[in-house]
Amino acid sequence: MISLPQIQAFIEVARSGSFAAASQHLSLPRSTVSARVRALEERLNVRLLHRTTRRVTLTDEGRSYMEQCEAAIDVLTRAESQLTRSNELAGTIRLTVPLDMPKPALARLLGAFIERHPGIRVETVVSDELLNLVAHNIDLALRGGSPGTLGVVARKLGEGGLAFHASPEYIKTRRVGKTLVHLHEHAIYDPAQRLRKRARSSVQPAPLSTRNFELAKTFALQGRGIALLPESLCAEEVRSGALARLSSSHRVPALPLYLVMPSRAHVPARVRALVDFITDPGNVGSLL
Rank of each mutant, 00 (worst) to 15 (best):
3 S>L: 13
7 I>H: 06
9 A>E: 03
10 F>C: 03
13 V>R: 12
13 V>F: 13
20 A>D: 09
20 A>F: 15
21 A>K: 09
21 A>I: 04
21 A>S: 11
21 A>D: 13
24 Q>F: 14
28 L>V: 02
30 R>F: 11
30 R>Y: 12
30 R>N: 14
33 V>R: 01
35 A>N: 06
35 A>I: 01
36 R>V: 03
37 V>Q: 15
42 E>A: 15
43 R>C: 03
44 L>N: 04
46 V>N: 07
46 V>F: 08
50 H>C: 15
51 R>H: 11
53 T>L: 14
55 R>D: 15
57 T>E: 14
57 T>C: 11
59 T>A: 12
60 D>L: 07
62 G>L: 10
62 G>V: 08
70 E>S: 03
73 I>T: 09
76 L>V: 08
76 L>F: 08
77 T>E: 07
77 T>K: 07
80 E>L: 15
81 S>D: 08
81 S>I: 06
82 Q>G: 08
84 T>A: 11
84 T>Y: 09
85 R>W: 04
87 N>F: 07
90 A>F: 05
92 T>I: 11
94 R>Y: 14
97 V>F: 03
98 P>S: 07
103 K>V: 01
108 R>C: 08
109 L>R: 00
109 L>C: 00
111 G>P: 06
112 A>F: 03
113 F>W: 14
114 I>S: 12
114 I>G: 04
114 I>T: 05
116 R>F: 01
117 H>E: 07
120 I>V: 14
128 D>G: 12
138 I>R: 15
140 L>Y: 02
140 L>D: 02
141 A>S: 13
142 L>M: 05
144 G>H: 03
144 G>A: 05
145 G>P: 04
145 G>A: 07
148 G>N: 07
149 T>H: 09
150 L>Y: 14
152 V>C: 15
153 V>Q: 13
155 R>V: 15
156 K>N: 01
159 E>H: 03
161 G>L: 13
162 L>T: 01
163 A>W: 00
165 H>C: 04
167 S>D: 05
170 Y>D: 05
172 K>T: 10
173 T>H: 04
174 R>S: 11
176 V>R: 15
176 V>F: 02
177 G>L: 03
178 K>V: 10
182 H>S: 13
183 L>R: 02
184 H>T: 14
184 H>G: 14
188 I>G: 11
188 I>A: 08
190 D>I: 01
192 A>V: 05
199 A>P: 01
199 A>G: 12
201 S>N: 07
203 V>H: 13
206 A>I: 13
211 R>N: 10
219 F>R: 13
220 A>K: 10
220 A>T: 08
220 A>V: 08
224 R>Y: 05
229 L>F: 13
230 P>H: 04
233 L>Q: 06
234 C>M: 14
236 E>G: 00
238 V>P: 09
240 S>F: 10
241 G>V: 12
247 S>L: 05
250 H>S: 07
251 R>C: 06
251 R>K: 11
251 R>Q: 07
251 R>V: 08
255 L>R: 00
256 P>H: 00
258 Y>R: 02
260 V>D: 02
262 P>I: 02
265 A>R: 14
268 P>C: 03
270 R>L: 15
284 V>G: 00
285 G>T: 04
286 S>P: 05
288 L>A: 01
